[in-house]
Design a protein around this nucleic acid. Structure first.
Lengths: 388, 388
DNA sequence: AATCAATACTTGAAGAAGTTAATTATTCGC
DNA sequence: GCGAATAATTAACTTCTTCAAGTATTGATT
């Protein structure tokens, strides 16, 4: 198939795939440098790079760094042409679709949203079609360069077939979303679980770049975790992986809706926090924003709820560090809007509970921009260029 | 290098390595079957198999299964010749060396032990030399077919270089054990962490065969876990992985020697159990055997200690299932001598705490024969034939 | 300015590894 | 015995990669 064809993926030639992926994720690199990193000869890199350059995916940059005192021919580092191709990303939530257009470097070029009222498959497909139209309008660039669409949602998804095995919030079972969306939109479609997609995005284009293993923790109503181990996303044999939210961290903790007890999510999930704050303040109508306001205002009992939540999250993250030993960990999600209330407790509890040198694992705690989830969807679409 | 050379490893030709590994782990298989599993053409399998047969590692078996109603030429399945080569395995513990001789199929052919009194590197090397001599004597077979030695111990080990980065129980730091043992014994030496080696053994030759992901939990004084994800052993970026013993499962639990609180090991480790039983019975001299006897005899308070321990272990295992979603899990270790006291509590707690379909993960709970640890060492030595 | 050493990249021949398609081998059911 | 079905092998070819040699470009030295 590749090289030469403008129709499909860049997969097919092992070295070409490796070269493209390395340039995409690790920025401009010289051929010699690539050869060292990939365990190839520099001749192989030269040959693998040529068709990628000819197709417009890569180009040579002017030399930047001087290579030391002694001289030598300066490198012509290879870099990605971000404008070569654009990618749509759509994240399906319970009440809306969030969409972005990204370039080849996963930079967001346009965004759009649409409310979602009906979880029926046909209705969702229709809305996806409208959203992609909106996105293309907002994008304004060359539409012929937009050929791929990534869709993500919470649930058990088979990326290779585009099948949604089970999605609780949409009440879907075995929906061939990839095939259906490809038919209705005409794009090449990739479907992936939302947390895994966000993890993949961070691994290729964010703080996880270059990490052999990596974890991304999302904090919100649910608490999830995406894992990269030995350079590959962890999928889980029974459709379950990264369920950090249902680790048991408190034997005397509350019963969780999952059937377990003392789960991280039943202590630190957004809903759980609100429930606890309501119980302690005796105000059954109170929401998250008020809870945060009370805590920031110094209400001791409410603060204690956030402290306990932060500790639970820290224990969960420490569990990830102790079990799989990621090179780095990113903590994110809409639950971190109240970031200041959690941050130090997460860190303290993580450092106490991480075993030995695992405590050295760098922890980035930061909220996500709203379109990050949709960017994750676009990122898996970018990955579909080179992954099988 | 390979094919043709009798000197080194069988690595070098990707397909040959894959074929050999598949035949080794998945028993006699026909070439066509191998081709399907490995994604190769049957021609490629034929070519890859020939040098392995010529070197005496594989042979053709007589056809066994009839291939259905309609007929066809019967397969000549490829099988491993167990006697082609033998492997030494040595596990270093705090007070003794345990050694085995295994054949190519990881069947134990001979065993030996030596007490260890001095943790000094030179002393350990000397004892390893004596133990391998004892093993060869006990083996009685063709010594020229014994060329590889695997050594395992608790601690942070770099398998690729044979470096023991840190081993607390021997007080070793940065000991090049692989190189030293190779010099002193003349064997090709592989060094690996003991739990990882046992996991690898179980993955290639035990209950983990064929599993894309797999976990082995060892229960004893320490509680550890080896993980295989996407077919590869998990190493951990900071020398930490599989530390299931230091997951926090009880926010109100005892302080652990690791600095954390409510760790599985501080509740369910052998030492922790003994300490709790001593405290509850007021008998400070009591040992594990007496504790087990009391529990079996129906002493309620002592039984409660074992129940709590089983629950903690179950929570830890559920954490593994929720995070990495292994295809199957084996629980083992000397702490399971009192297997009957744990078994049901481990299962109950696992099933309660495993999220959704993760509870379907098959759990094998069984004690280990004493030489299993040394067999793990031999297994990594067998793996060194084909792994880089 | 000419030369040298160092580094980056390219080229073409040669080799390794895999594929396809045709061929041979062996069995069952008729 | 014959045809259908399955397994294994062979041979020609494709693809990818390396090796060894050569070209390109720079800074430092003379």
């Amino acid at each position: 198939m590749f090289p030469g064809s403008d129709t499909g993926s860049l997969a097919g030639a092992p070295a070409a795939t490796a070269v493209f992926t390395a340039v995409l994720t690790e920025g401009p690199v010289s051929r010699v440098n690539l050869a060292r990193r990939l365990g190839l000869s520099s001749a192989a890199v030269t040959k693998a790079a040529r068709p990628l350059i000819d197709l417009g995916y890569l180009h040579e940059m002017a030399a930047t760094e001087r290579s030391g005192p002694g001289a030598g021919r300066p490198a012509s580092p290879l870099a990605v042409r971000p404008d070569r191709e654009f990618f749509l990303g759509v994240k399906i939530t319970a009440d809306e679709l969030i969409g972005v257009v990204c370039d080849l470097c996963a930079q967001v070029r346009a965004t759009a949203r649409r409310p979602l009222t009906d979880p029926d498959v046909e209705a969702v497909l229709t809305e996806i079609g409208r959203l992609t139209d909106d996105l293309l309008d907002a994008f304004g660039g060359d539409r012929s360069r937009v050929r791929r669409l990534g869709i993500t949602l919470s649930g058990d998804v088979d990326r290779t077939t585009g099948l949604v095995r089970y999605s609780p919030f949409l009440h879907w079972r075995d929906v061939p979303l990839g095939r259906r969306a490809a038919q209705s939109t005409g794009f090449t479609v990739t479907v992936e679980n939302d947390v895994k997609a966000l993890t993949a995005a961070e691994h290729w284009f964010g703080e996880g770049v270059g990490a052999e293993s990596f974890a991304l923790v999302t904090v919100g109503t649910g608490i999830g975790c995406g894992l990269v181990v030995n350079g590959r996303l962890v999928s889980g044999s029974y459709g379950v992986a990264g369920e950090i939210g249902h680790l048991a961290v408190d034997a005397t903790g509350p019963d969780c809706h999952c059937g377990g007890r003392g789960c991280v999510e039943s202590i630190a999930g957004t809903d759980a926090i609100v429930a606890q704050v309501r119980a302690r303040t005796g105000r059954p109508d109170l929401g998250m924003d008020e809870a945060v306001a009370l805590a920031r205002g110094g209400h001791d009992e409410v603060r204690a709820v956030f402290t306990r939540a932060g500790n639970a999250i820290g224990c969960g993250i420490a569990a990830v560090a102790n079990l799989v030993g990621p090179t780095r960990i990113v903590v994110s999600g809409e639950g971190l809007a109240a970031y200041d209330l959690f941050d130090s407790h997460i860190r303290t509890s993580f450092e106490r509970q991480a075993f030995g040198a695992a405590a050295r694992c760098p922890l980035s705690i930061r909220p996500l921009p709203f379109e990050a989830w949709a960017r994750g969807a676009a990122a898996v679409s970018i990955q579909s260029l080179v992954l099988p």
